[in-house]
Every structure is written in C-alpha cells, then in structure tokens.
Design a binder for these strands. Structure first.
Lengths: 161, 161
DNA sequence: TACTTTTGATAGTCAAAGATGGTCAGAACA
DNA sequence: TGTTCTGACCATCTTTGACTATCAAAAGTA
C-alpha cells in the first residue's frame, strides 16, 4: 500500500475513533511514525484533505505548533447547493470533478453508481475530441451543473426510479 | 503461441481462479514476467479487453500505480455490445440520443431517472460551447458510450449500486 | 521592569528524483 | 497486408530534501 494512502487512512481512522469532527496532530511525530519526510504529511493533506474532499486544515508553526484537520459537515442538500452555486463555476478540471462526484456519493446525495455514471460522462476519455483543454473544462462544468440540477429536481437518485 | 494470446489467457485464468469479476495487475511486473515491452500489455488490453469484449479497464499511474481489469456480466455485456455497435455509432444527434435514452428507460434497461440524468449530460444546453455541431455529435456519442459502459458494469440500472 | 535579541521547535514551499502507466510510429512477423 | 511487438517519449502520482517562515520562550540589556 502506498504511504500516502496509509497516512490518509490513519488520520481518518483517528477521527472516526475519537468521533470528533476535528483532530490535531504534530507533523514531525507523524513523519517519524511513518518514517518519512515531514513534507510527506503536507502532500497527503493537500491531495486528500482539501475542501473538495470535505476537510479544511489549519496549522501553527513554532514551539508547540501543530496541524488541525477539520471535517466539514453539511446537511442534506447543502453540499449540492454549494456545488451548484459556488464550487463548480464555469470551468472545472477532470480531477476535481471526480473528487466532487465521489464526495456526493459518500454523503449519500447520490448513489455510488450515479457518481460513476456522472463521472464517466465528463471523464477525459469521453471528452477526447480535438478542442482546447480550456473548453473541455467549461464543457465539464456545464454538464456537471446540468446533471446535478437534474438530480436536485428528481430527488436523491440511486433508487429504482 | 502468440505472446498476446498468452497474456490474454494468463489474465483470464487469473480472473477465473480468483473467481472475482475484477483483478489488479502491475504493468511492469507483467511485462517482466512475459519478457516483453510494457506497452505490449497495453496492446493486449486494447485488443482483447475492451467494452465490446465485455471488459473495462482502469489504471493509476505514479508510485503504487496499477491496472484494474473488470469483467462485465454476460447479460449486460451483450446488451451493451448491441447498443454500442448498433445504435450509437461514432456520432449521434441530440434528438436521436434523447430517443435512445427514452427507449432504454421504457425497456427497463435503465431507470427513468438515470435516463434523465444521462440526457441532461448530453443535451444541447450542456454542450453550449463554441465548437462545430459535428464535434458535438461525436462528443455525445462518446459520452453515451462511456455512460452505458458504466451502467453495464454496475448492472442494469435501478438498483442502489 | 520593559523591550529586544536569540534560540530552538515547529510547519510550509518547491523543485527534483523516483515510480508507475499511456501513446504512437514504425519495425517485425505470419 | 493486417496483426503483433518494441522503443522512445510523455503524463501522472509519490516521496524526499534543501531552504524558508513563524512562533514561543529564554536570554540579554537598558
């Protein structure tokens, strides 16, 4: 298993066990525990604990410094609203779109299958036509908004419908 | 026996033995095992493990990366083959796509909701970016193929997935 | 005391190296 | 003559290390 995955899991497990929406950790301690460079911890945070993933982080340097990881909890439908009104905007990368679809499923706003279906529509392979990447990002945003609007209209998907 | 055939057989045997609809493998390990160029593995995947053959593949690059091969259930595989080969082609108009989605729902292949979702992704409003209509028809076809492949992979619609 | 400097303990950034897999043109083969 | 196979080059993800920034407490100073 990848180191990054192990660290990610460790942190999430820690949050689960403490049943707290936030935890504090010492970067150097973590690095020592996993026998890796301290900056590895930053890498994990910046690739797996972003706002798109549903987390925000804070930190304090200097003596007694630490990193705080906070899980954002949104009520049913709020996340969807946030995506449509703020997050997606008029362009979005494939990677971000994938993360957001995954997050929607995790939150139960859509089923895992619907998430896969949505992502398969906007994945790079689907958009493999000769147009600038910039346009693809715009297309993706439009499609995603359109699909999410449909989801919002027709209820939280996944069901038999 | 041709190398490609040997690799194909090896992979299929591996899936049989594990009795799993999906397996993961390392491209470089495989290449080493068969003493061939790593790209040979891609060749085998792209000629023998396509959706038309009843398989889909995913992969992840970078450290700890791997290739995942997923077998689509037989029933779905045949249904899919029909759709991909007979109905969609490499370009499709918005109207034809809409009708297709509707028929799929009628036949119970996908839920009404899924049909709406799929159509909202490929509707003209979603593709409202400045590119030739011809490209849009190709895009639509790609997206539809991709979404149907995903549906097939996860079983015939409706369920919770 | 009150203010400044120093020091040690943290964390952040960024670029380079390492580890995978992907693509494509052309050679080799059957 | 189409299929198979290879190799050079590319893209992506992970890991590390050198250098930088910040902070709190201790030490120095007027």
């Amino acid at each position: 298993m990848r180191l990054s995955d192990a660290i990610e899991e460790f942190i999430k497990t820690m949050m689960m066990e403490q049943d707290e929406p936030e935890i504090e950790l010492k970067r150097n301690e973590m690095a020592e525990y996993f026998r890796c460079a301290p900056s590895q911890i930053n890498y994990v945070l910046s690739t797996r604990f972003t706002p798109d993933h549903g987390y925000v982080t804070e930190s304090k340097r200097g003596g007694g410094g630490c990193i705080r990881i906070i899980r954002i909890q949104r009520k049913n439908g709020e996340f969807l609203k946030y995506l449509l009104e703020e997050r997606i905007g008029d362009a979005i990368s494939p990677r971000a779109a994938q993360i957001l679809c995954g997050k929607l499923a995790e939150q139960g706003a859509i089923s895992q299958r619907t998430a896969q279906l949505m992502y398969s529509a906007i994945a790079p392979e689907s958009l493999a036509v000769p147009i600038p990447e910039m346009l693809k990002d715009k297309l993706r945003a439009r499609m995603l908004r359109s699909m999410l609007t449909t989801v919002a209209r027709h209820g939280p998907a996944g069901g038999e419908g």
